[in-house]
Structure formats: structure tokens, C-alpha cells
């Protein structure tokens, strides 16, 4: 019995089934339906963009980790792949591959590795990449190929914004929109955001696997619905309905997959609710009165910046402080 070397470690001696790899794998699986829809809508070129984006992100992360940070290989935790897919989802299907590579360098290089890699970045890397592209290459980022079944190459949000600005009444704009098509995915847009139903399927999976909680997505979308609902109720001739806002643009993609990024969202449930309400409100402000038709990416990045503050102010409810104190 003596020559056996026993392992000594502090308690606990068992571990839950949850680990980073499994959770990232679940996120990838949850993104799969949206990818399938985008391929159906835009053809194989959508898949090529996503695959290329993933390849670039992984390569950039490996390169920086190997030669600049000189740390261990971190590809195994799958986070670079998730960022790659999300970045691809935020690009139009006809974007030149060279631009995808630039986006990947910005997303991983500047958005993530500059801060030291996974877990240390304050901003969502995929969104850093997207917003950079939006500012640097506005034309390439906003001219979408016509998706199968879509009415035109312009996104519903851009169309509505243009039309409303030109003074057309809401009723006229609504004629060109079909809510069922928007829900299923027959609309133009970045390749991952077009099908709401596919994204909601992914949300369901993430909830079932307990990867994320409902708080952020529901509060983001709820705030957007409330905000746009009030405006719509006040003046239905000038503002689009809440349903239109929820089904258009990156609302669902952002709320389910981007805003819920662990690294850049708050640590407490209460904090998550505050953060999500902020995202919903800022998104609507930009959509209704800002220069851009879509505001989700900016809203998430702005709230990302506030996360440390939220975490400082909002503490979890501690045991033994609520009821017993007078």
C-alpha cells in the first residue's frame, strides 16, 4: 500500500460537467441553424465567408499567442472559433475575402489579444471587428447581395430609415415588409442575422444547456419592444411597430449571441438586467434618431465599457442580509 503515490488536493474533489470547451461547443452548435439559413439564402459564398473568417481568427490568435505573448496555445478553448463565426455572421455575404482577413485581425488582434487574450478583453471582439469595418469600409459593409426570397438588396431597417427620412408614411413602408418573411429569413442583411427563427432555435439550445440565462436576451428585446412600442403608440404614422424592430437587423443576433458574451457582460443577474436594458435603449435611440439604421453593435460596445462600473455597483444578494436586518 505504501509505494502507491496518493494524490492530495484541497476539496472539492469532484467537478461539475461544465467546462469552457463544452460551453463554447454549445454556442457553436446554437449558431448552426443560422448558418444553414444563411447558406440557403445566399448560397455557398455565405459559408465561405464564415469559414474564412474562422480560419483567419484562429490563425491570428495562434500567431499572437505563439510569437508575441509567447504563451500556451489557446485554440483548444474554441473561443477564437466562436469569435470567427460571430464575425462572419456580422458581414455581408458578398464581402471580399481580403476585407474579412482585415476584420479578423482587428477583431482578434486589437479586440482581444491586445488585452491579454480570452477573459481580459473589455469589448466583444467580433463587434470590435464589425464596427471597425462599418466605419472603415461603409460601402462594402452595407451593400448586401439579394437573398433568396428577399424583396431587395437593402435591409428592411435601411429601407425604412431612408423612406421615413424622405417623408413617406409608415403605412407605405409597411407595404414592402412581410413580417413572416422577416421572421423566417427572407430578408437582406449580414449573413447571420437574417433568420430570427434560426437564432431563436439557438437561444433555446443555449437555455436548455444552461450556457446562458434568459436575462440578457429577454431584457434587451423587451426594452427594445417597450421603447419602440411607446413611440409607435404615440405616433404610429412616423414610427415603425415594435414587431418590425424586433424582427429586423441584428436585434436577435445581438441580444442572444453578442450581448451575452461572458467576458464582456456583468457578473450578477441584476447587473445583467441593467446592462441589457442599456443595450436595448441605446439601440433604439440610434435606430430612431441616429445616423445609422442599425445601432445594436454600438449599443453593445457602449454597454461593454460600462460593465466594470456595473460590476462594482451591483453586488449579488448576500445570504443573511435581507430579511433579518431591521
Amino acid at each position: 500500500m505504501e509505494n502507491q503515490k496518493l494524490v492530495i488536493s484541497p476539496a472539492p474533489h469532484v467537478h461539475g460537467k461544465n467546462d469552457t470547451r463544452r460551453m463554447m461547443g454549445d454556442v457553436l452548435l446554437a449558431l448552426l441553424p443560422a448558418l444553414v439559413v444563411s447558406v440557403l439564402a445566399y448560397g455557398w459564398q455565405a459559408f465561405v465567408v464564415v469559414a474564412f473568417s474562422v480560419a483567419c481568427c484562429v490563425l491570428v490568435e495562434w500567431f499572437i499567442q505563439r510569437f508575441m505573448l509567447r504563451g500556451e496555445n489557446t485554440i483548444g478553448n474554441l473561443s477564437a472559433i466562436v469569435t470567427g463565426v460571430l464575425l462572419g455572421f456580422n458581414l455581408p455575404a458578398n464581402i471580399p475575402l481580403g476585407l474579412v482577413a482585415i476584420a479578423a485581425v482587428v477583431a482578434i488582434g486589437i479586440g482581444k489579444m491586445t488585452y491579454g487574450g480570452l477573459g481580459k478583453n473589455p469589448f466583444n471582439p467580433a463587434l470590435v471587428g464589425r464596427v471597425f469595418m462599418l466605419v472603415a469600409f461603409p460601402v462594402a459593409m452595407t451593400s448586401f447581395p439579394e437573398a433568396v426570397g428577399a424583396v431587395s438588396g437593402a435591409t428592411p431597417l435601411a429601407m425604412a430609415k431612408e423612406a421615413l427620412k424622405a417623408g413617406a408614411p409608415v403605412s407605405e413602408v409597411l407595404q414592402s415588409v412581410n413580417f413572416a418573411d422577416m421572421f423566417l429569413g427572407a430578408k437582406s442583411g449580414s449573413l447571420g442575422e437574417i433568420s430570427v427563427v434560426a437564432l431563436l432555435l439557438g437561444f433555446g439550445w443555449l437555455l436548455v444547456r444552461r450556457v446562458i440565462s434568459w436575462h440578457i436576451p429577454v431584457c434587451v428585446l423587451g426594452t427594445m419592444a417597450l421603447f419602440s412600442g411607446i413611440m409607435w403608440a404615440v405616433n404610429p404614422a412616423e414610427y415603425m411597430s415594435p414587431l418590425f424592430h424586433l424582427l429586423s437587423g441584428g436585434a436577435v443576433l445581438g441580444a442572444v449571441f453578442m450581448a451575452t458574451d461572458y467576458v464582456t457582460s456583468p457578473m450578477t443577474k441584476k447587473g445583467m438586467v441593467i446592462y441589457a436594458i442599456g443595450i436595448g435603449a441605446i439601440t433604439m435611440l440610434i435606430r430612431l434618431w441616429g445616423p445609422y439604421p442599425e445601432g445594436m453593435s454600438f449599443a453593445i460596445l457602449i454597454m461593454n465599457a460600462l460593465v466594470p462600473l456595473i460590476d462594482k455597483w451591483v453586488r449579488p444578494r448576500r445570504f443573511g442580509v435581507v430579511k433579518t436586518q431591521k
Binding site: E2, K5, L6, V7, I8, S9, P10
Partner: peptide, 9 residues
Amino acid sequence: PKTNRFDGA
């Protein structure tokens, strides 16, 4: 000689 193996922080 080592008699066991430590596996903690």
C-alpha cells in the same frame, strides 16, 4: 523521496 502527489493551487 516523495510519498504522495500534490495537486492544488
